[in-house]
Simulated scan of single mutants.
Amino acid sequence: MENKVKQIHNFGQSIWLDFIDRQIISSGNLQKLIDEDGIRGVTSNPAIFEKAISSSDDYNDDITAFGKEAGTTEDIFFNLAIKDIQAAADLFDPLYNEGVVGADGYVSLEVSPFLALDAEKTAKQAEELWKKVDRKNVMIKIPGTKPGLQAIRETISKGINVNVTLLFGLERYEEVTEAYISGLEDHLAAGHNIEHISSVASFFLSRIDVVVDPLLKEKGADDLVGEVAVASAKKAYEIYKRVFSTDRWKALEAKGAKPQRLLWASTGSKNPDFKDTKYVEALIGPDTVDTVPLETIEAFRDHGIAADTLMLGLDQATETLGRLKSLGIDLDKITQDLEDEGIEKFNKPFEKLLKAIEDQQAKG
């Protein structure tokens, strides 16, 4: 019987692994995930790298070597990360070049979270990282903050692939699609072709429910517990279908533009009462990506159910979000708070990561 994770691809969704370290690459386990589970990409973030670098000796020699030539601790980190990202990108190169070139096979590297509210520095660093990694199948991750919108447009306008991260709210998501489309128009207007540019918009799921569910219980709306994140994602997919079918979009598509796919992130269940594959199962559908932690991939391989679920219950999703309003729960405020908190959640591990590199240097 076909591997359950692989079955998801039959419904037009790509599964990417939300994890990277040297061990998974050098041991052949990442290649195994590609071959057996049909994994089609990798995403990383500061928290993932912090775990990788502080919990293993695999990076010690490089920290010493890079320490001799790199300027700051942050430079050393990016040199370490770029080495991993290049190795992973090379593994995914055959996938990137398969069938429709550039449909999949991407590896994502994030700009410094310290820059999340500085458009100019974010765009500058995105370009620097892109040039240093020097792989077509890399995406530079830029947070979808208000200042991030300008950086996204600018980065796309330079012909660089972007993974927009940290999206929680529908309004902000629509602004991100606008930044992507404008960036493509800018690149085209500057006389370049756009068919090589690819982008995803990463919509975070389980964290929404973590905040909303206790409020629902307080108000006696227990039937909505665990439903809000999925309802939001389904509404985001409606926006995606609308935005990428306009005449404005069709003009770009005629020049070879690819739609900016929605990517479901934060898909591990944080509530032990929920099925551990809940967020993956609820949102399987065409032209989307799901980035999944290793343990959730293993859980899905064991007992997940692959079915075309994304377009089911759209009316119910509208109703769920409508009921939140009538219960006096302000989802816009919650998603803004989550975005602010999300920046903090990446700053902390990044600080910890830089400290771990410094400690290692002191030992070295």
Rank of each mutant, 00 (worst) to 15 (best):
D213S: 07
G342S: 05
L263D: 02
S54K: 07
K258F: 12
G169M: 00
S54E: 03
M1F: 15
K333W: 09
Y59D: 09
I329E: 03
E341N: 13
F114M: 02
A229N: 10
E50D: 03
A356Q: 08
E36K: 14
A87W: 04
S269G: 07
T72D: 10
E175I: 02
Y96P: 02
E351Y: 01
G105V: 05
D21A: 01
K355Q: 09
G12D: 15
K255L: 10
D223W: 03
I24Y: 09
V162H: 09
R242E: 11
Y173M: 00
K131D: 03
K132Y: 11
E36M: 11
D35N: 13
L170D: 00
L252W: 14
L129P: 10
I284W: 04
D276S: 06
G38V: 01
E36T: 13
Q125L: 09
S55N: 02
I8N: 04
F11T: 14
L331V: 10
G342I: 08
Y279A: 02
E339I: 05
K255Q: 14
L205W: 09
I8A: 06
A233V: 08
D247L: 01
S182M: 12
K255S: 12
A126Q: 04
D84V: 05
E253H: 03
A151G: 01
F203T: 07
K217I: 13
A89I: 12
L331K: 08
L314C: 07
K124C: 06
V212M: 15
K348M: 13
R323M: 08
K219D: 09
I85C: 12
A151I: 00
K68T: 05
I82H: 01
V133E: 01
Q31R: 15
F19S: 04
L115E: 12
D273R: 05
S232W: 03
L327I: 11
E74V: 10
Y240M: 09
T296Y: 12
T309D: 02
I53Q: 09
T155F: 08
G226T: 02
D35E: 14
S199G: 10
K255F: 08
D359F: 00
E174M: 13
L324S: 00
D104F: 00
E98V: 13
Q125F: 08
E98D: 15
V200D: 05
A307W: 02
T267W: 02
G105R: 03
L262I: 12
L216C: 01
P349F: 06
N3G: 03
L262Y: 06
V228K: 11
L312Q: 14
G364K: 11
H187G: 02
T288Q: 15
K131G: 04
I181C: 00
M311F: 10
T177L: 11
V225A: 15
I15H: 03
Q23S: 13
H192I: 12
G12E: 15
I334V: 04
G12S: 15
F66D: 02
T291F: 06
N45M: 13
T165G: 11
S266R: 01
D332P: 09
K217P: 08
W264Y: 07
G105F: 03
I156M: 13
F92H: 04
M139T: 05
L354M: 09
A47P: 02
L321Q: 14
L166H: 07
F114H: 01
E174F: 09
K348A: 14
A81D: 09
V200S: 04
D186F: 07
S182F: 12
T288A: 15
S108A: 10
T165C: 13
S44N: 14
A52N: 12
